[in-house]
Design a binder for these strands. Structure first.
Length: 129
RNA sequence: CGAGUAAACAAGACAGCAGCGGGUACAGGCGUGGGAAACCACAGCCAGCCGAAAGGCAGUACAUGAGGAAAGUCCGAGCUUCGCAGGGCAGGAUAGCUGCUAACAGCAGCCGGAGGCGACUCUAGGGAAAGUGCAACAGAAAGAAACCGCCAGCCUUCAGACUGGUAAGGAUGGAAAGGCGAGGUAAGAGCUCACCAGCGCAUGGGAGACCAUGCGGCUAUGUAAACCCUAUCCGAAGCAACACCUGGUUAGAAAACAAUGCGGCGGCCCGUCGGGUUUUCGGGAAGGUGGCUUGAGCCGGCUGGCAACAGCCGGCCUAGAUAGAUUGUUGUCAAAUACAGAACUCGGCUUAUAUGUUUGGUCGCAGA
RNA sequence: CUGGGUAUAGCGCAGAUUGGUAGCGCGCUACCUUGGGGUGGUAGAGGCCGUGGGUUCAAAUCCCGCUACUCAGA
């Protein structure tokens, strides 16, 4: 399946406003089904999480994690991964675990409201602990 | 051995697995998707193809791929554009001397000053007799000074008043008119002398800043990171510059002003060039490729120079992305932990920085 | 990439041109006024002027270096 990178600001804005999302201290994922016939992804690392070297590391780690998670995705989706301040300080495995679960949740369910999603997320958090 | 000082260097290594960028070898067409096109993407197909040529290309293989500060953007340059010469003013920058450099507010050596027992460190370090301003409060007075005091004269009833001399003493202040001692005097005073400090002149030394010696008279406080003066230098904007390509537009309407005017190298004046200009309404301002890495380059040796640096010889090619590659992860090494990511390119400065290694002086203690 | 601006009391701002006393409004504290509260009145506290140096007798102010925030243009 061909993979592409999201560059346009309007797609980012569309996902932030209309996409489904999962929140975690290490990573925030937005997802939306598209009609492109391929899966696209974008990474956002704001100035808040650190200097240029730290932002680059966050992006690298997220890309590496996505590369391994990618194979399990079915259908064509748009994803946006938002790095958070703790992302720069952990190993790739932890990001991968979080991302795997978030994508699984987002792609499996359909038409759930934001509130319910958040509930599921918090439950799974508790179970992990 | 301890303390302190100056400088240089490194900025993890190796192995396994997974992955990315551009480059080279070796040689693109079709298809699909995006697009108006140029062009871009794709392990979709074929095996060489397209093109007149130059040249171009999927896949595969190979080597290669962040820093000492890549940072801050504080200086200086290259490069590009502003149609084309220019002059002056304004404005800005620098400020001991000599050298180095493409240039600099940088560097090297030296001079003066400050600090340290010392090795050594720090230093915006021109001009205050060109002019103007300011020096609050206090104080008599902040510049050619008499409040108290001291001395002389004179008046007078003791007190004291008046006139004059006087910068030794008191008080104020950051600063009080060279410092200190002796002579001198009515009391005093560079009035005279010794030493010290400053200024001027002369002689000698030095490339120069300056230093040494001698003589002279004592006349002028501080502030120029206040205005200013002197000397030297400076056009502006920035790779989102700019060039080319594809496509589109390169229509127009209304009003006002117009040669003592308008526009252009941005402020002003002159010069010069252009031939309309301004406002409102309406249309367009999107994409691709180049610029993009061979350069005041790096490494080694020799020569010159105290050094910065320069010259010669030999060798090397060492990131070029465009939502932005250069890494992720595991193991071993005692630990790998700091600051931190090229974005047109160089030379500096400034700031951040874990840990480790090496070298040259200095001081103290002990021993031979 | 380029060019500006701001930082002063708990909050919002003066003071910087021309260097010597840090001030205004709201808020805060105490007291008075009221049966009580508000309003009103009187008095008071609260500042190493963002940070590190320098010039000066003396710096919020002048000069240099940092830090944070913020604006504009391409």
């Amino acid at each position: 399946m061909p993979v592409a990178v999201i560059k346009e600001n309007r797609i980012f804005r569309r996902l932030y406003s209309k996409g489904k999302y999962q929140v975690h201290p290490l990573l925030v994922t937005y997802a939306q089904r598209n009609r492109e016939g391929r899966t696209r992804y974008g990474i956002s690392a704001s100035k808040k999480i650190g200097c240029a070297a730290e932002r680059n590391r966050a992006k690298r780690v997220i890309r590496a994690a996505y590369r391994e998670v990618e194979k399990e995705i079915t259908g064509s989706w748009d994803f946006i991964f938002v790095a958070r301040s703790r992302t720069t300080k952990v190993k790739m495995d932890e990001i991968k675990k979080v991302m795997e679960r978030q994508i699984k949740t987002l792609t499996a369910e359909n038409g759930k409201s934001g509130k319910e999603k958040r509930k599921i997320e918090s439950q799974s958090e508790k179970q992990e602990r």
